[in-house]
Design a protein around this nucleic acid. Sequence first.
DNA 1: ATAATCTACAACTAAATGGTTGTAGATTCT
DNA 2: AGAATCTACAACCATTTAGTTGTAGATTAT
Lengths: 108, 108
Amino acid sequence: MELDGEEVDRLFHALADRTRRDILAQAMTGDHSVSALARRYPFSFAAVQKHVAVLEKAGLVTKQKHGREQRVVTNIQAIERARTLLDHFERLWVERLERFEAVLEEED
Amino acid sequence: MELDGEEVDRLFHALADRTRRDILAQAMTGDHSVSALARRYPFSFAAVQKHVAVLEKAGLVTKQKHGREQRVVTNIQAIERARTLLDHFERLWVERLERFEAVLEEED
DNA sequence: ATAATCTACAACTAAATGGTTGTAGATTCT
DNA sequence: AGAATCTACAACCATTTAGTTGTAGATTAT
């Protein structure tokens, strides 16, 4: 598993904004159109539309057309992906600790 | 647990850069000074120093002075924190699924 | 003592980010 | 048919970001 790549950049960058995290949380709990989401924030429709686009490029959401509306649907796999990446970081740390403990064992 | 706040912004933003993720991975596997880290990248010392500062403000690393060196040490709790935040997102999604399933049960 | 190394920080630049307004095409409502 | 709604996208602006070079203070090595 690679910890580099622009895909990962986009994923964490999308999560690094309060409004986008809130939009994502909204989309997690129910289906909302872009304009329904936009009404919840003190920003223009276009601003919220851009945030959704950032989430979409990060793979965190997709859009489904329903008539004139565009429903924002979460992609739970992208969250799993982010978690897996963090797990790999943690493992590096744990493995180092284990190596350290192995050395202590030898010293006995 | 809050999913908002500038602290969280800083955390995910720090992770949203390939070089910083790599620096973090290096710091996870062993102790390195800032200049030792800087030598591994095709950037100036100052650039790497800034990346470390971003990681530090995000709480992902701390610095420990050893003589003229500054050792970069990871703070595993910050990674745990990020994982916990992602877990909360996932839970929103799962809870929604459960509500949905409960409705289906009722219909029987 | 002097030179080399490590760090901190300021000043600068180009590009990206997050917001705005405005225009225009689809779709739905009356 | 005409009005209202939803979306897409361009153009613009202010701020932040990620890089640079340069200067200066502390510490270590010769």
